[in-house]
Simulated scan of single mutants.
Amino acid sequence: MIKDRVNICLIGAGRAGMIHGRNFASRVPGACIISVCDPSEEACAAAAGELGITDTFTDYREALKDERVDAVVVVTPTAYHRDIVIAAAKAGKHILCEKPMAMNAQECEEMIQAAEENHVKLQVGFMRRFDASFVRAKELLDSGAVGDLVLVKSLTRGPSIPKPWMYDIHKSNGPLAEVNSHDIDTMRWFSGSEFQTVYALAGNYHCGDARQDFPDFYDNVILNARFANGVLGCLDGAQGVRYGYDARVEILGTKGSIMLGDLQDKTTVVYTMDGGKTADVVQSWMHLFREAYLNEDISFVKAVREDGPVLVTGRDGLMAVRVVNAGNQSIVTGNVVEL
């Protein structure tokens, strides 16, 4: 039996949260956002005004008491994911949890267990799996279009300087989690295998304010990997690059390669008489993956309405967090880390 409508509570009204909020307000069939929760009363009021709703909460525990709510979208700092997701599961709410899933593997396992025990859906927010170009690349790869897979290289570089709370690696897990969780999941998805070994190098090149109090903080990272099936992986991540939002993937096979992504935003290029050349550059992940977020939200609601499987599971989130933790360990120790 298909459920007529899924009532959504948004927990976390920041930039990413509002992407989901806008989708559920008007663009997701069979869904309706009925409440928003954020510790900031100002953020709640702004979100409610934009989304056209009246019910706001500053405490997620109070929001979960609303029996009208069928599902929650958790878009808070990572350190709070475990407690919110477990509470939501116990309240019988289906869950879409943004990446990174949690701080460590144990927290992920507890979240998965809570969802299973309370018979609710748990989907993790790796929206690149819903991007049309990424889906097409996966189809081509699986069809053998480039032969046997050899290497997956994934790059994500963000333009903005990290928020101050992200400087503490123990609270944020660093750029490997905040920025490059998507790359880790992409590499795992395309390889069709699990990370077996990782070796990572990192440094702080842009964030001078963090060097004294947070000497372990890094804003650039390279992670090389081998998968259990022998495929090689390479991750290139950065924050604070300023030149634009850069997300690209190269898939190398024995008979060819597949390229994904382009820093140039539009095809319009300007040539000037002094020999100059300019073009528009992608400035934000919110713009680049706008439709992927929508497809992700549609897929989640479809799974809830039809009682079907989610396409990105808690285990997918767990495996990415394991790689983040292993990569951070490798950065600190200088060693290859086996998973």
Rank of each mutant, 00 (worst) to 15 (best):
V281H: 04
K121H: 14
L339V: 14
G237V: 07
R61C: 07
R226A: 11
F227L: 04
V198R: 02
P39M: 07
E117Y: 05
E42S: 10
V241S: 03
E194I: 11
I19R: 13
E250V: 14
A105D: 12
K138P: 03
T268I: 15
G208N: 13
L64V: 05
T254W: 07
A326Q: 02
G240D: 01
W165M: 13
N118K: 07
K3P: 06
V179Y: 02
N325L: 04
D131V: 05
V336K: 00
A177S: 14
G314Q: 01
K65N: 08
I11N: 01
K302R: 15
C234F: 05
E194P: 00
V312F: 07
G244L: 05
T156V: 13
R157N: 11
G144H: 03
V75I: 11
N335I: 07
T268V: 15
Q239S: 09
V221Y: 00
I222L: 13
A292D: 02
I33N: 00
H94E: 03
T272N: 14
F300M: 08
R248F: 09
M286S: 14
A31H: 05
S154W: 11
M18V: 03
A228C: 07
M101S: 02
M166T: 08
D66L: 10
M103Q: 11
L318P: 10
V221N: 02
T278E: 06
S40G: 09
G308K: 08
S160E: 13
G334K: 03
C44Q: 05
T197M: 09
S181P: 01
F130V: 04
S172A: 09
G275S: 06
S284F: 08
L311Y: 03
E296Q: 15
E306Y: 11
V304P: 00
T156F: 08
D316N: 15
G49S: 05
A48K: 00
A137M: 13
G317S: 06
I112T: 06
I298K: 13
A89N: 04
R322E: 13
V301L: 06
H182T: 13
K171C: 13
P309D: 02
E62N: 14
I251M: 04
A25E: 01
G144A: 02
R157V: 10
G144V: 04
M259G: 09
V269M: 06
Q196D: 12
E194M: 14
Y218K: 04
F130R: 01
K93Q: 09
A247R: 01
L339T: 10
D185I: 01
S154G: 08
L51A: 00
V135G: 00
K171Q: 15
G275Q: 01
F57V: 06
H119D: 14
N295W: 08
C37W: 02
L263G: 07
D38N: 15
A31T: 04
Y293S: 03
A137D: 02
D4P: 15
R290V: 11
L201E: 12
L149S: 07
